[in-house]
Amino acid sequence: MIHIWKLMENDWKSSLNYYIRNGFKPHPYYYNCSRIEDSYAIGETRHFAGLYFMSVGVLILSIYLPCLFVISRSDLMKSSCYKIMLYLGLMDTCCLTVNSLVTGYLGFIGATFCSFPRIIFLAGSIGCGCWMGSCATCILLAINRCSDINHNLPFRKMFVGKNVYFTLLIPICYTSYAIFFTKPILFDSVYMSWFFNPFLELDSDLYVNVPYTVNNCLVSLCTASLYGYLSLLIHWKNRHAQSDALSKTQKQVFVQSVLICICKSTAATIYVYMQFFHSPPPVILLGQIAWQCAHASVCVVYITWNRTIRRKVAILILPERFRNRVGVMSTTFLSTGPILNQVATEILKANNANCKTNSGSVF
């Protein structure tokens, strides 16, 4: 415990809060670039990787932002699930801006912390804080999905009515703390990734971000446990309902959950490992791509699995003539919630059908 406190005792002076109060200048001891004679010559231009990250970032954000607009302006917001998903989307877009657009540009020009200290310090604080906030929101969303299917869970009341707004204060406060009061991640074009250590010939223990490390360990454990419980719960409900349609939905839920969980867990694990141990460049690059995929995967799930969002996004961005050709209706929408809401609805239908006919048919 004493050792952990020593690792955290300089968080205040290494945080964005100090940076702002110090006239937008990093701490002169922990982030003093004068120790390096030619701070502009230690980077490495990464044109191909830079173009890749920027291109993927623009593509994902061009899909994600319309999805968030559709969610915020539709009846979907009546659901507590979508309120949480909207905040998760805001965290994802902030992270994608940092881990795709900013990363791609800095890698393309071969930047390091000492070549662009202000923009990298600011972007690193936002990227690190929003990553931690998205992890907390993702766990909260998983708890919400579990309570939606198992009504006997005691924390179901957290998401009922206006209680969800008070519940959302948890990830909001956590995000604010992570952005303003913990150490930022800093970009290094040599590895095309972000590190807490700016490599300025000081003890690496001075740059350990304990809250971030704990966060990443917990997100791997909690997401795996919650989605594992969710899959088992759906499997049990599916057997009880005896529904082929529910079985198909179960598989969809399982695939989505596993993909999102794998991306977040992979990024979390690699980023923790490479902060403490030497990692080969391919592993570090894999961690950067996994961080990007962890946020992009949510958008892909929206646009490929949710027909309501997909239709409304098409109406928002496609010309009417093209919509008519591809068969997108502009006047009617299917009332299709998130895939996990479909599971809950189908379970209720199946239970009602079993009580009346014992036939096992949902529809």
Rank of each mutant, 00 (worst) to 15 (best):
R239S: 11
T137I: 07
L153G: 01
F199M: 15
G110A: 01
C135N: 08
V362Y: 05
C299Y: 04
A353W: 08
N17W: 12
I60Y: 10
F254Y: 15
S225V: 15
C135Q: 06
V300M: 12
S55Q: 04
A344G: 03
I262Y: 11
Y207E: 06
R156A: 06
M1A: 15
F199R: 11
R156E: 00
T103H: 05
L7M: 04
V255G: 06
A350R: 03
R21I: 06
I317T: 09
C135R: 04
L206A: 01
V326L: 12
M8T: 08
V253L: 05
L226A: 10
R310H: 03
G287P: 02
F277L: 07
N352E: 13
V343Y: 04
A296L: 00
Y64S: 13
S39M: 13
I172V: 08
K6A: 11
G23S: 03
L316Y: 02
F254L: 14
N306G: 03
S39H: 14
F53K: 06
S100Q: 07
V160H: 10
W305N: 14
T331Y: 13
Y52G: 03
G57K: 05
Y191S: 12
L286R: 06
W291L: 04
D38M: 01
E201W: 13
K183N: 05
E44Q: 15
W5E: 15
Y302Q: 12
H151D: 05
L88V: 13
S100A: 10
Y273K: 09
V326R: 11
A111I: 04
N99K: 07
C299N: 07
V362K: 01
R118G: 11
L51V: 10
E320M: 13
G337N: 00
V214G: 03
I120P: 03
I339P: 01
G107K: 02
T93S: 12
F363E: 13
S257D: 02
V253E: 01
Y52P: 00
P117K: 00
W12L: 15
C217T: 08
I36T: 10
P28K: 04
W5H: 14
E37R: 09
L59R: 06
V253N: 02
L61V: 07
L140I: 04
V258M: 14
I36Q: 10
N352W: 13
G337S: 00
K162Y: 14
P282M: 05
L233V: 09
I71V: 06
Y82R: 01
A290L: 03
L122I: 14
C261A: 09
N341W: 14
F180A: 00
N216I: 13
S74C: 02
L286P: 04
S176T: 14
G327Q: 06
C114R: 00
C217W: 10
A123E: 11
F333Q: 10
P338N: 13
L140M: 05
C130F: 12
K237Q: 11
A136T: 08
G124D: 05
L316M: 05
K237T: 06
Y30S: 01
D205S: 13
C173R: 04
T223E: 12
I303S: 00
